[in-house]
Each structure stands twice: as C-alpha cells, then as structure tokens.
Design a binder for these strands. Structure first.
Length: 552
RNA sequence: GCGCCCGUAGCUCAGCUGGAUAGAGCAACGGACUUCUAAUCCGUAGGCCGCAGGUUCGAAUCCUGCCGGGCGCGCCA
C-alpha cells in the first residue's frame, strides 16, 4: 500500500536521475524497495545505488547520496532519507502517513487485506483425495488444512476457487475393502469366511458390516459379488469423511471419482490419442507409455497385461478433464509419497497437448505426532493411526488448523498434542486469539464507560506517536501485501507468522500503555487504533479459516 | 545406486526468493497482577546457519561435492 506508493516515487526519482545524466537507465526494474531487517534502518530501504554501481562500476555510496538528494525533495510521504552501509538508501516515512492507515482499514472493513489481484482467474485446488478405505488420518489432516487454507487465500485475492477431491473407486484397493466388509458381514451372520490376507482390519469395517446386518439381516450371505459390499463401504466411509472435513470447516465443490472416467470413455480416449501420436506401445502383454520421451529414465506401464489400467492412466485422464474444464490454474496438493506420480501425469498432459505449466504441485512432508514428549507410532495396515476425528476431539478445530498451517509444506511437521490441547500460555493458538479477544474486551469496556468510539472525524490520530503505536500501524499497513504474497506463493504459514507477530506487538503495547485513560482525546485516538487492529485480526484469522473469539 | 525434500539457539521452526549486526515460540533463569482479561508483559542467557569449496560489491539464501535424516524409485495407489 504505502510501499507501492513509495516504489512509484523511487521510480520517478530514478527516471529524473537518468534525464539529468546522473546514471543510465540500465538499472530499471532491477532494484527493489524493501522493509529492512533492523528498525534503525528506516521504514523502507532501496538497493538502487548498489544495483547501478554494479552495472556501471561506480562508487555505490556516492550514487546513494545523489539518489537521496532527489528523494529529499519529496516531502509528502518521506520524513527522512539516509545513506547507510555499503550504499543502501534508507527512507523513513512520516508519522502522519502511518496514522492514515487507521482510516484506510476502517474504510475497507472486512475487505481490508482482500484484493482482486487474482483477476477472477479460475483455479482448481485438488486436495485430500484419500481413497475411501477408512477414516482420515492426521497426514490427510495436514493436507486438508493446507489445501483449504490455500483455497481461502486465493479466494481472498480475487480468484474463483473450485475445491475438488479425487478418489479411486475402480481399482484393487476398493475391491479389497469390499471383500473385507463381506468377510466381517459373514462373520456377524454366523458364517465365517476367510478374511482377506491384505484386508482392512479396522474396527470401522465391523461398523459397516453391522449396518448391512441391520438393513438386510442375513439376506446378503449368499451374494458372491463384492460390489454391494464395496458400494456400501464407499458410501458409509464417505459420509464419515465429509463429516470430519465439515468439522474443520472444509467443504468440497466436487468429489470426482475414477469410475466416471471409465464410464464416459475418457480412459479409452486418452489411450487412443496417445497411440495416435505414437507414444504408446505393447510389450510383454502390457501397454506402455513412452515417458522416456519426456525426460524420464524409462517408460511406464499404463495398462497391465491383465487388462487393468495402472493408476497412471486414470490420473492422466483426470488431469485432462481438469484442462478441458478450462481452469486457468491447477493446483495439486499431494503427500510427498506421491512424488513419483507427478512426472507421469505431467508427461501425460503434455503429450495430450496441454500446457503443463498451468499445473502447480505442492508436496507436503509427513506429520509426526508427539504425546508426552514421545513420538506416537502409527500404522495404516493395522489401523493404529490417529484419525483426524480423534485429533479434533482432543485439540479442537482451531488448534488443529493452526498447527497444520504453522509449517511450510516442505518441512516435516511435528504435532505436539499436549501443546495443542493445552489451554495455557505456551499455546500459540490462544496467544493470537487472545489478542483479538483482548481488543474486543477493551472496546466493551469503552462502551460501558460511555467512551464512544467516535466517528473518525473527531479523532486526532496524530496523537498516536508512541514507538509501539507506529510499529502497530506499520504492521497493519503491511497486511494486504502479506496476504497477496502468501496467496500467490501458496504459503499459508506466512499468515500465521504475521498474526503471531502482530499479537506480540499488541500484548506488549497493552501492557505498557492504557487505552482508556484520563485524556479523552488520547483515549479516542487509541480506541480508533484498537478498532482498526480488531479488523486486521479478524480478517487475518478468517482468511485462513480460524475463528476470532470475542471473549476467552 | 538414482530423484525430490530437509539440516539455522537445548527443542520446534521462521527468514519476505542475493542484502546491512541472525529471528520467534517453547524449555531455563530473574522480575511485573488494587489497573482496559496475567491465556499477558519486561529482562537475562543461548549460534561455525551440517561440512568443504565456488560464483560477487555482498551468501543461511545460488552452484558443485561430501555427511546426516525423511519420502520415493512396481504390470501397488
């Protein structure tokens, strides 16, 4: 906001300098205006002199001094200019400019931080995509929160977001699930059948079987096909999965199933197209895709000698469907164990004539759970994993969201159950939410004491001159740019770090200064700051799907 | 063996995509409640940014090679 205004100013001074013959125009677009690391280095800093010096082999400090002289003339934004270090030009913005942020925030209200940079681009975010063979585990939980937070950030920045969940219901995995349910069913109606060797052992399989007994008694005991059992399992488990996701505030626009790709002929079309382009061949009874043409080590089987496709084929067909549905940007969120499938899918869509550039894949690392300081051992096979539902029971939706968002996807995530569940000071979720509650509390007090939070015409924001007040104003001013960049970089964790920082500044300020005091004008000014801060907290929390409690 | 990710304070992790003197939260230690919520604050201590080279005005960040950890490398998904 202010940074972009300053950038325009710097650009103008740069051009002025070119016209005056102080330097050439070569550095255009190469220098930056940034917020420096240390507070004694001004509010903003530009490396323009260093860039020019590098290009023209000149003395950076001298160039910096000349550039500073040009900036000095601009007094509406700038309070001070200084040359520092190897040749940085540090710029201090006038307090009055920061103080105007309060008006800006209140004018925008709920829209503060939201933007239209997305330009209505249509984006699909595919995430979770767990096959309905059992309840969601904590690994899926991370993906669910990550994907939803990314979706929310994109929505906040003017994208049209479509959330989609893809699952395989045509393959072996779901067949085994059906067989597992049938075995439990037969066991329950007194006709024990051998349980499949690689069957699903979880207690939930019995639950599904019990539902079948309740509905049909022993009427299904002579059914040989696995189909009815599989369908039932899929339906029941999906109902549970959707309910779990809903507990976290996640709703998908569509559950896309693999089987539909067979039914509408998409699978056959993909094979035919690839074959027509000479990218498919038969060997040892299987059908191979020439992935080696796309920079891979070797070709891959897409149809097994048994006639059954491998997972690759439907994955490619599914991605072709995404392209056909005319999205501008396709975001896939996968666990890091799916890394091997990505090149195949991208090779597939490239081969079919689509721009693989439109696909962004985010791989997230695994989650380890910590309880009593020790790692919780989990095994999918034995169904000893901790489910998302159990996690939500234990720590609640906000803490789960917060903890899953706290780390960038590339990092493995250690989820400390005791910390997330603790209602105490070391829990960062409460630290941030308490910030918002505290602001609400101050405003409640103001109301009770009859200190009206005046229309901003009565408020003299120039009274907000304390260092920590200016720091709070600066932090608020940085919020829109933060949201924009977190959205475009697909990095929700940055919002969390921002909120923790803002909360820290607020709590510190609160302990140092009284908002409602003896001086009515000062109280008014500070209350206007509190109102603006509340807006930023609320917007920040809401944009990433967290609640903003008014009391705690 | 090959590919991707990670390695930063005792622990868990940030570090705005190459900037200036390295950051936060926990844990440790010492302080602050007659006050708008102490779910808070203030202070102290804590570092060979895995190691070694290279690129340049400048590297935690980029390139190469090692070391250590995770995930993959199927006619499983």
């Amino acid at each position: 906001m202010i940074r972009s205004r300053l950038k325009e100013l710097v650009d103008r001074c740069f051009v002025d300098g070119v016209q005056q013959g102080l330097w050439t125009g070569d550095a255009a677009g190469k220098y930056t205006v940034e917020i420096p690391k240390h507070e004694n280095q001004g509010d903003f800093s530009t490396n323009i002199a260093l860039v020019i010096a590098g290009l023209e082999k000149r003395n950076p400090r001298e160039l910096a001094a000349r550039f500073a002289a040009l900036l000095e003339a601009e007094r509406e934004l700038i309070a001070a200019v200084a040359v520092a270090g190897p040749g940085f030009v540090n710029i201090t913005i006038s307090h009055s400019v920061w103080q105007q942020v309060i008006t800006t925030v209140e004018a925008a209200g709920e829209q503060f931080g939201r933007s239209r940079v997305g330009g209505d681009r249509r984006v699909m975010v595919e995430f979770v995509s767990a096959n309905p063979t059992g309840p969601l585990s904590v690994g899926h939980g991370r993906q669910a929160i990550l994907g939803d937070a990314i979706a929310r950030l994109l929505e906040a920045t003017g994208h049209h977001v479509y959330r989609e969940y893809y699952y395989n219901n045509a393959g072996r995995q779901m067949r085994v699930l059906g067989e597992s349910v049938r075995a439990r069913y037969l066991e329950l109606v007194g006709e024990p059948d051998s349980f499949p060797e690689d069957g699903y052992q979880g207690e939930y399989i019995y639950d599904i079987a019990r539902e079948l007994v309740a509905e049909a008694g022993d009427g299904l005991k002579d059914v040989v096909e696995v189909e009815p059992f599989q369908r039932k399992a899929e339906a029941v488990i999906f109902k549970d999965i959707s309910a779990t996701l809903a507990r976290m505030g996640i709703v998908f626009d569509k559950y896309f199933n693999e089987r539909s790709l067979y039914e509408n002929g998409a699978i056959d079309e993909v094979v035919a197209e690839l074959r027509a382009k000479g990218l498919v061949y038969e060997e040892q009874g299987a059908t191979w895709f020439r992935t080696s043409r796309f920079g891979q080590e070797k070709d891959r089987v897409i149809i097994k000698s048994s006639g059954e496709p491998t997972y690759r084929l439907p994955d490619i067909a599914y991605h072709r469907e995404k392209f056909r549905r005319e999205f501008d940007w396709l975001i896939d969120i996968f666990g890091s164990d799916h890394i091997a499938t990505i090149p195949d899918v991208l090779a597939g869509v490239t081969a079919l004539g689509y721009e693989a550039d439109k696909v962004t894949v985010i791989l997230h690392q695994f989650v380890t759970l910590l309880r009593d300081g020790k790692q919780v051992k989990m095994s999918t096979r034995k169904a000893t994993f901790v489910t998302v539902d159990e996690l939500l029971d234990e720590v609640g939706a906000d803490a789960a969201r917060f903890f899953f968002m706290m780390r960038k996807p590339d990092s493995q995530l250690e989820f400390d159950l005791d910390l997330a569940a603790s209602q105490s000071q070391e829990n960062p979720v409460y630290y941030v939410q308490y910030g918002h509650a505290r602001l609400c509390s101050i405003l409640r007090q103001a109301g009770e004491k009859g200190v009206a939070v005046g229309a901003d015409s009565d408020v003299d924001t120039a009274l907000l001159g304390e260092d920590d007040e200016i720091a709070l104003l600066k932090a608020m001013a940085a919020f829109p740019a933060l949201i924009e960049s977190a959205a475009l970089q697909l990095e929700p964790h940055r919002v969390i770090f921002y909120l923790m920082d803002l909360a820290g500044r607020l709590h510190s300020y609160y302990n140092k200064h009284r908002v409602i005091g003896d001086d009515p004008a000062l109280s008014q000014a500070r209350l206007s700051l509190i109102v603006a801060l509340r807006t930023v907290f609320r917007n920040g929390l809401h944009i990433v799907g967290l609640t903003a409690p008014e009391t705690m």
